[in-house]
């Protein structure tokens, strides 16, 4: 079980992560049934505090909270007081006054979720739904869930599973959370990217680094493609979209090199034709739609573990 907040994949132990995934599996089964709604979080209020647009993540958290009968308030920066320059502190104190039990925060500044949790601005449980170029822990959980679902060898944990994470590692919160979680669960992770898109200091991470996609693709079990932002091109991280796509995109010829049981993942939204070709995205190996579906179950599990009991200090 996890307690308090979920700010980083490093908040999870191997045991608590596997526990969350088991809970998510149970919840997925129940919500596959005729009645998708559970009464568990009736009377709790979950605020989706989104300072960046991310419809996918927001609706995933929203449906997770609603399936557990929590009340959901969506607070997005656009068209709100935030766009008029209100500080994170004032926004948090407002939500506190409104009785939020949990705040799901997406913010462009790395560490915003941790600031919310560490300061006295708000007492609610904080769930990091993506902070700047730092982390996105529920994405890593749903990715681990999806890998376990599809790879027979990963019944217990991810020992021996070889995962390639390909693309803009430097700016990717998905990559950071996945490196932490997947290696904790026993996976062997290789990061594939041009050197411009790898952070200085990456050599301290428990991963293999490669600049060459083709050398790595043949014996991997999972290939996770990261979204590439086109504006990176203007900052000379790579010369052109065509060159990036040719060297680091998942195209048909690379798809054919994958082993029979390997799966293709992408956190979405995809740039079809840039980091992933349309054929790859729609191939039988692609589990991208499952990732979206599993996201709801995993987020239900997180909300249940953080909100399902009495607040700390009020337990009988």
């Amino acid at each position: 079980m996890i307690t308090g907040h979920l700010l980083s994949a490093s908040d999870l132990t191997k045991e608590s992560a596997l526990g969350l995934l088991a809970t998510a599996k149970e919840l997925a089964q129940i919500t596959d049934g005729p009645n998708k709604k559970l009464p568990t979080l009736r009377g709790k209020t979950v605020v989706n505090l989104f300072f960046e647009d991310s419809t996918r993540t927001r609706i995933s958290f929203e449906s997770a909270a609603k399936r557990l009968s929590a009340d959901v308030i969506n607070f997005s920066a656009k068209g709100s007081s935030v766009s008029k320059g209100e500080s994170l502190k004032d926004t948090a104190q407002t939500l506190q006054a409104m009785g939020a039990d949990a705040v799901v925060i997406r913010h462009s500044s790395s560490g915003a979720a941790k600031r919310l949790a560490d300061t006295q601005w708000i007492q609610a449980a904080v769930i990091n739904a993506g902070d700047g170029t730092h982390e996105h822990p529920t994405q890593a959980l749903l990715d681990a869930f999806t890998i376990k679902q599809h790879l027979k060898s990963s019944e217990k944990d991810l020992s021996g599973v070889k995962v390639l994470i390909v693309g803009d590692i430097l700016h990717s919160r998905v990559a950071r959370s996945n490196v932490i979680l997947l290696t904790k669960l026993g996976a062997k992770v290789t990061l594939v990217a041009p050197p411009t898109l790898l952070p200085v200091g990456v050599n301290d991470w428990p991963v293999k680094i490669s600049y060459n996609f083709d050398e790595e693709i043949e014996d991997c079990d999972v290939v996770m493609m990261l979204r590439i932002q086109l504006e990176r091109m203007n900052d000379s991280f790579f010369p052109s979209a065509q060159e990036y796509s040719k060297r680091y995109g998942l195209n048909t010829s690379r798809l054919q090199k994958l082993s029979k049981s390997a799966i293709v993942m992408h956190p979405g939204p995809m740039n079809r034709g840039l980091e992933i070709s349309a054929e790859s995205a729609d191939d039988l190996k692609s589990v991208i739609i499952d990732q979206v579906k599993n996201g709801v179950a995993v987020r239900m599990a997180v909300l249940y573990e953080l909100l399902g009991g009495a607040p700390i200090g009020e337990q009988r």
Binding site: E26, L38, T40, G309, A310
Partner: peptide
Amino acid sequence: LDITLHRDDLRLRPPKPILPT
């Protein structure tokens, strides 16, 4: 049949792990 998610004393005690149904 696991009943954890339907208990009426959830908010009175620490959350319990969900068991398989």
